[in-house]
């Protein structure tokens, strides 16, 4: 196990926001709100286009340039996928993500620490943040992920 330094950038990539993908994601997430799928409804609400659900940044794996993106990331982090789980995720929406935007994505290690619980289980907690900036360089979304790897049991 090699802990990663906080601030280490794992990847930078383009993240295009496409109408069909947003609609597909909204349907799969059972969130069929008209602002996600109906351009007229979005314009009527004062938006310039449909917007994406708050959880949409989780589709970044399509744009990172690896077939098995999550497994590839774990390999980079030197985590064992068989002993690791996705423990928590927090989405921050700073501005709506609009269909048609070409976002710039940055995936960065936010934290990496090992803790041993009172019952003797040692776990590694890796914080992985996804930052999405729009064409004007404005941060529109931050996603904070925590992955947990069980290292040892007493």
């Amino acid at each position: 196990m090699n802990e990663q330094a906080a601030g280490h950038v794992l990847a930078r990539f383009e993240f295009p926001v496409e109408a069909g993908k947003v609609a597909e994601f909204a349907a799969a997430g059972r969130t069929p709100h008209p602002l996600f799928t109906n351009r007229e409804a979005a314009l009527g609400a004062g938006l310039r286009a449909c917007i994406a659900p708050v959880t949409y940044p989780s589709t970044f794996v399509f744009h990172i340039g690896a077939d098995a993106a999550v497994l590839e990331l774990m390999k980079q982090l030197k985590m064992n996928p068989a002993r690791s789980v996705h423990g928590e995720v927090q989405f921050h929406s700073h501005q709506p993500i609009h269909v048609g935007e070409q976002l710039q994505a940055t995936l960065v290690v936010a934290s990496d620490e090992v803790r041993t619980s009172a019952n003797g289980v040692t776990r590694r907690f890796v914080g992985l943040n996804l930052l999405l900036h729009n064409q004007d360089g404005v941060l529109v979304s931050t996603t904070e992920n925590t992955f947990i790897e069980t290292l040892s049991h007493d």
Binding site: P53, V54, V85, G87, Q90, F91
Partner: peptide, 13 residues
């Protein structure tokens, strides 16, 4: 409250 109201959403699995 509609999608535009959602500013933060945290989930533990």
């Amino acid at each position: 409250c509609g999608p535009l109201a959602v500013k933060r959403y945290r989930i533990r699995f």
